[in-house]
Nucleic acid binder design. Structure first.
Length: 181
DNA sequence: AGTGCGATTGACT
DNA sequence: GTCAATCGCACTA
């Protein structure tokens, strides 16, 4: 995940996310489009930013064809670039909690509703890149990071669905210990 | 027009 | 472990 700001570039590896697919009663798109959630109905790859609990922004990415509601909540990053600026945004120097959790992540990247509706493919102020290894590893077997699947965090409806995905063992993943697998 | 609560976090016992 | 902060919005009437 790459955030471009006048002060510099911020980036991090996505290590935790949750799916909110079409028809999911826990999704904000479930009851149809409204002014708040219309970005979830844009073609996949658009940003939906939700202001939660009156104080935290949450970063989502639409995941379906145009007109179909669905999205992915980005819950945690492993910080890569611009760590000092992220620390200023978070008013904390604690590295492990810098982007661990959806609210912290959005604060660190200075994400708010002005980014709502943005097309991630447009290479604007926010986009997703593919990290290229420092050295060419074509002849080396690339090891896939171990993935784990659990129920989603902090929801009440469809609470049994296994739609949370994270990199096993990564210290930048959020959530209660009982969900660790 | 009024109301209850939410995809969380940080402070505190 | 508990709990307050804080507000936009969907829902009810």
């Amino acid at each position: 995940m790459v955030r471009e700001l006048p002060e510099g570039r911020l980036s991090g590896r996505i290590v935790e996310a949750e799916g909110y697919p079409p028809g999911d009663p826990a999704g904000h798109h479930f009851r149809g489009p409204t002014p708040r959630n219309q970005s979830l109905f844009l073609r996949c790859g658009h940003v939906y930013v939700y202001f939660n609990y009156g104080m935290h922004f949450m970063l989502n990415i639409s995941s379906e064809r145009a007109g179909i509601g669905g999205g992915v909540l980005i819950r945690a990053l492993e910080p890569l670039e611009g760590i000092e600026l992220m620390q200023r945004h978070r008013k904390s120097t604690d590295l492990i909690d810098l982007t661990r959790g959806p609210g912290r992540l959005a604060a660190a990247l200075r994400i708010d509703r002005t980014l709502d509706g943005l097309d991630l493919f447009s290479r604007g102020p926010l986009w997703i890149g593919v990290r290229v290894p420092e050295k060419s590893a074509r002849h080396v077997a690339v090891k896939e990071p171990p993935a784990a699947v659990t129920v989603r965090i902090g929801i009440t409806r469809a609470a049994d669905k296994l739609f949370r995905f994270y990199e096993r063992g990564n210290p930048f993943v959020s959530g209660p210990k009982r969900l660790l697998r």
